[in-house]
Design a protein around this nucleic acid. Structure first.
Lengths: 338, 338
DNA sequence: GAAAACAGCGCAAACGTTTGATTAATTTTG
DNA sequence: CAAAATTAATCAAACGTTTGCGCTGTTTTC
């Protein structure tokens, strides 16, 4: 009942040739005659030969495996991104292993170490919310394992990354609201420490001043992204002397809390909301955001993995160039509103 | 700048002992003296020695890797399940590799083959919608690689699986609606080929007859789970001579389409809807389902991986017992309705 | 027609680790 | 005190594949 996988040695024994010839034959090496080559290939097929990957990996010192570390797989953005990574890696015959940092710095450090020990050929990372120190990645680099960051990227110069252009997307979002006639626009931003918050704020400012309006800092409220934090921010807007008529929410979760609260307060119709997409079904809500910033997680995943494979295959000479790829985010106007 | 990982050989050379002693020393083999053992361990630590996994795998013929094949990672249920699988495997020092079948039978076959070639120690599978033939799993079994199915399981006796008890959960759901006073309850079921459809139907029937009501087959409509299919089913209910006042939807997507259509038709208030949870934020909808069947994906993932590890570690003698684990699903009444 | 080129294949080492068999030195036993 | 047992370490093979080098015998070249 139990089968043992066929090996090159076995094929060699049956054909009365050397294992090396079999290996070369299977790889179309020129120094193997066409007749022998075909015999080898035929027998291999009929015996259902499959190269023992473990042996090849070991021999070549390559694993044909890329590691992915991200904060939380259950977040829609990441589940789509890793889906893309897997699809793309699969095409190139690479295997993906992954692990979640659950947004904890110490765990992330351990995972990076583990991936290194697994001898992954390269690493794709979206850093945890609380990662401020990046030495663990330096260590990986010193083992000549390339690292590409995506989405949540560190504020460093000398790294490869793929991220979305949140600043220009925010400009688009605010412009859209301005064009709709809004003159006082609020923004519920994330914690000030996040790079993503900075980008949103900069985009907001840029759009406001470009349209010759005055930037009012009190209209941009930092928030811890919890439900309570969102409610607090909402209340500030409701009591604001220049009560906004539109709000840019940090993400769909915030938008959700906001909508819930505004409905409860019976003021939902006083606001147009724009958000950054990460909950696919939010557009089904009754008072869904009028527009969403789409960050194309699938595309980001694709680009990140392709860059990584590039780095893996490029000669490991000192390549001084760093890939800094921005995936343009688009403003999607929600058509299903009725 | 570039480091080469430390090997056992190097440690042996430095300490002037044989590689085998180093290996045994690191593994606390009794035939290595305490002094030597400590010297070995110290040097290993200071040189940052990490065993070359590829070499060990190769040598032992084990990979300490489990493969996961599932239809679609972006489905919430699966993203949670694989998250659990990863967490649990991580604890036991196993690595997870995964691939998506995208609900295509041929791809699934290929992936199973690929996993086999990767020499995974075990396989966790949620089968594709269109898989009716299961020979590809037999093949894996013949290589002594255990397979545990979860959630979407094949209708076979001699397999290990973890799945949720949809039948009894459906009984609970229908009972709940009956207790709320509904006397005509519709069900939008999936395709008849799916085992999950059968279970739902059986549960429905059971609850109805147990409550001494007559089972009306025309109130259970099979549907292809698309938006149009859902609309067609909804229309049938609206024109039904015993127009139902409550509907059990196959899943949250169907519920979503249903709600959308009923709102458009302005009949949303005529219905109570119960669904099977897979969209976390559906409860935020204005006319959300009054209750949801929770299938505990995290728990299912956990159980599945633990069973698999059991099988991997159990002596590969003919273990005639099959793990058939049912994770009870619960009816969660949606409190946020107001 | 001798030298050079080439086609077709085998030999052997290498990758890092584990492990059964073996040896040598020491200690225990009767 | 010789024989037996124990301790501590080494040797060598093995896992499956790849690859540089070397070896034949044939064909081409001038």
């Amino acid at each position: 009942m139990q089968s043992k996988p066929t090996t090159i040695k076995e094929i060699a024994r049956i054909l009365n040739i050397s294992p090396s010839s079999v290996s070369r034959g299977l790889h179309d090496h020129p120094s193997i005659g066409a007749v022998t080559r075909e015999k080898i290939k035929q027998l291999a097929k009929s015996l259902n030969y499959e190269p023992n990957k473990a042996a090849i990996l070991f021999q070549k010192g390559k694993t044909y495996t890329i590691g992915v570390i991200l904060p939380e797989l259950s977040e829609h953005f990441f589940s789509i991104a890793i889906s893309a990574i897997e699809d793309e890696a699969m095409k190139k015959n690479y295997t993906v292993i992954f692990a979640q940092s659950h947004d904890r710095y110490e765990l992330e450090v351990k995972l990076v170490e583990k991936m290194k020990n697994q001898r992954v050929d390269g690493l794709l990372v979206s850093i945890s919310k609380h990662t401020c120190n990046f030495d663990h990645f330096e260590k990986v680099n010193s083992f000549n394992i390339p690292v590409v960051f995506f989405d949540r990227i560190p504020p460093l110069k000398n790294v490869h990354y793929v991220a979305s252009g949140l600043e220009s997307a925010t400009v688009k979002a605010v412009n859209y609201l301005l064009k709709k006639g809004h003159r006082s626009i609020g923004m519920i931003n994330g914690p000030g420490t996040l790079y993503a918050s900075e980008e949103r704020k900069d985009g907001y400012k840029q759009a406001i001043t470009f349209n010759r309006l005055k930037f009012d800092p009190s209209l941009v409220i930092n928030c811890d992204l919890t439900e309570q934090g969102t409610i607090d921010a909402a209340e500030k807007f409701l009591k604001h002397k220049r009560k906004p008529t539109a709000i840019v929410a940090f993400n769909d979760y915030v938008a959700l809390f906001l909508i819930k609260h505004f409905k409860k307060m019976n003021v939902i119709d006083d606001f147009d909301i724009v958000s950054y997409a990460n909950l696919p079904i939010i557009s089904y809500l009754d008072h869904a955001p009028v527009a969403s910033v789409e960050q194309y997680p699938y595309l980001q995943g694709q680009k990140a993995v392709n860059i990584l494979l590039d780095l893996i295959h490029s000669p490991n000479t000192e390549n001084q160039a760093y890939y800094n790829t921005i995936v343009d985010a688009d403003l999607i106007v929600n058509e299903t509103n009725y």
